[in-house]
Amino acid sequence: MGYTDNYERDAYGIVAFWLRSNLEHGQFFDREISHYELELARANQSMVQSLEGIWRRAEEKQGDFAILINESQQAVSEFRNFLTLGMNKALHCEVIVSTPVSLMDHMIREAEESQKVFGLIQSGGQVLVADSVIHESTFWLRQMADHLAFVQHYLDPSYYELQDKVRGMTQKFERLFLQANALRTIVRKPRPEMLPALNVFRQMVINEAKDLEAFKLKLDALIKQCAAITTAPRNMLEHLAREAHHLWRNLEEGIIA
């Protein structure tokens, strides 16, 4: 399945979004594992197969939702624990993987966020708009800055203009992330209303996330035309664009999803 920005945002759709993100992380990680690390590769392939099966059921809205979300929690928890163990081994130089440790941490953070969202769905809890804007901004802006750093990592160094553009965008999202963290303590709980300063920031992030989504899809098209040389995993730019879309949609709707 190619890029989709119109996934249904009901309970099944949101669970499918997070399952797909974790599934694709596993697929990306698969190609980074050295052929010497057979045990690690087999464990990762098992995780990918488990996530894919549950994701397909969520996409097709098959079966009882309570059972589906419990299985999703379990599968993502196991994937998160697997990545954490792998990252710890990488930090001790006990495994051979090409994935930067910061990228493994990035994937772990998304797995943990998945579990939080699943828990919120299960509880039926409601989050105030201002709280959701603070939460989504502080979580996703860091992920967006990471994405750009990873894009730069995979781009051929000879693309000087493109490398410079990606660096500039990375710095922009790092600054937005710092501003989101500042607003988290400036606009303190309880947050019963959207203060003007927070609303202006929300719109700023929405605009930048839309531009980022468009940039990622443009770069994805260049890569698929073999017009930009990169070692990025297949469909990585679609994955990144989908998450940028998810960020600005959540901010527009004032929800955690």
Rank of each mutant, 00 (worst) to 15 (best):
37 E>F: 03
38 L>A: 09
38 L>P: 00
39 E>G: 01
39 E>F: 12
40 L>I: 14
41 A>H: 08
41 A>V: 05
41 A>I: 09
42 R>W: 03
44 N>R: 02
44 N>W: 02
45 Q>N: 05
45 Q>W: 00
45 Q>K: 11
47 M>V: 08
48 V>R: 13
48 V>E: 00
48 V>F: 09
48 V>Y: 05
48 V>N: 03
49 Q>I: 14
50 S>E: 09
50 S>R: 14
50 S>F: 01
50 S>L: 12
50 S>M: 07
51 L>Y: 00
51 L>K: 06
52 E>F: 09
54 I>V: 11
54 I>Y: 04
54 I>P: 12
54 I>G: 05
54 I>E: 03
55 W>P: 02
56 R>L: 07
57 R>W: 02
58 A>Y: 08
58 A>P: 11
58 A>D: 15
58 A>E: 14
58 A>G: 15
60 E>N: 13
60 E>R: 15
61 K>T: 03
61 K>Q: 11
63 G>I: 05
63 G>E: 00
63 G>C: 03
64 D>H: 03
64 D>Q: 04
64 D>S: 03
68 L>D: 00
69 I>W: 06
69 I>G: 05
69 I>L: 15
69 I>H: 08
70 N>A: 06
71 E>G: 10
72 S>E: 00
72 S>I: 04
72 S>M: 02
73 Q>Y: 10
73 Q>M: 12
74 Q>S: 11
74 Q>I: 05
74 Q>C: 05
74 Q>R: 07
75 A>W: 03
76 V>T: 06
76 V>W: 05
77 S>T: 08
77 S>N: 10
77 S>M: 12
79 F>L: 11
82 F>L: 01
82 F>R: 04
83 L>N: 11
83 L>S: 02
84 T>N: 11
84 T>H: 08
85 L>Y: 15
86 G>S: 12
86 G>D: 11
86 G>V: 13
87 M>W: 02
87 M>F: 01
88 N>I: 06
88 N>Y: 05
89 K>C: 08
89 K>P: 01
89 K>V: 14
90 A>R: 06
90 A>F: 13
90 A>E: 02
91 L>W: 08
91 L>G: 09
91 L>N: 09
93 C>A: 07
93 C>W: 10
93 C>R: 14
94 E>H: 09
94 E>K: 07
96 I>G: 05
96 I>A: 13
96 I>K: 15
97 V>I: 03
98 S>D: 15
98 S>K: 10
98 S>H: 08
98 S>Y: 12
99 T>M: 10
99 T>K: 06
100 P>Y: 00
100 P>W: 00
100 P>C: 03
100 P>H: 01
101 V>R: 10
101 V>Q: 14
102 S>L: 08
